[in-house]
Nucleic acid binder design. Structure first.
Lengths: 106, 106
DNA sequence: AATTCATTTGCGCAAATTGCCAAATACGCA
DNA sequence: TGCGTATTTGGCAATTTGCGCAAATGAATT
């Protein structure tokens, strides 16, 4: 079993790195239910619009999102719904790390 | 569909962030075939052992690895083989980003 | 052409990350 | 106890990241 070639490791790492920020994960979750324009995203994500725009760029640069300009607005779309299927695995890591995430349903 | 709670986003992001480095991904790949002690890992990963040790800590801190001391050595183990099943999805992102990773088989 | 709305980019700053060297720690053995 | 091996940690410099403000860009409308 040969070692994974470095260029592939680099490429994978870029994708994971892009996902390694809570705001960007919030954006991914939001877009999982359909495309949105920046102003809609900005309404939901609490941060300066310039910051949101930069997070969107990061996600698009690694291929997770695509964008399309329509008239005045830019719509972003999740290219990779398979990402969300990974959360189960991630969550199992979280709990095994002894840092339980409490979800209180009231 | 309620927004994903922030603590959960934070927790997920930490895991992705830990995976967002090529050397750490190389370690994960190596450990996917079974546990190893630090010196074995160090032989394969080219970096200072202190650097390798720090990468191992990062992965362990988020729960991706566990470690056990046996005699003189510390063995690290992948707690989450499901991680590797995610590469297919990640690779699809990579190629759609128009940054093909060339795998030359000679 | 001038105005307005939507989005991106330049800038500066604080904080985090990375990597190596050297020193410290932990363990087994003579 | 003293030595050699295995691993972690402290410290430092260089680089990157994240954020908001303000300015710039692009498109539509008057």
């Amino acid at each position: 079993m040969p070692a994974t070639p470095k260029p592939l490791l680099d490429a994978r790492a870029k994708v994971f790195k892009a996902l390694g920020h809570p705001t960007r994960l919030a954006i991914v979750d939001l877009l999982a239910s359909g495309e949105r324009c920046v102003c809609e995203i900005d309404e939901i994500i609490e941060a300066d619009m310039s910051t949101v725009s930069r997070h969107l760029s990061v996600l698009r640069n690694v291929g997770l999102l695509s964008s399309e300009k329509r008239g005045n607005q830019v719509f972003y779309k999740l290219e990779c719904p398979c990402i969300t299927t990974f959360y189960g695995c991630v969550e199992s890591v979280i709990s095994s790390a002894g840092k339980p995430v409490q979800l209180i349903i009231t």
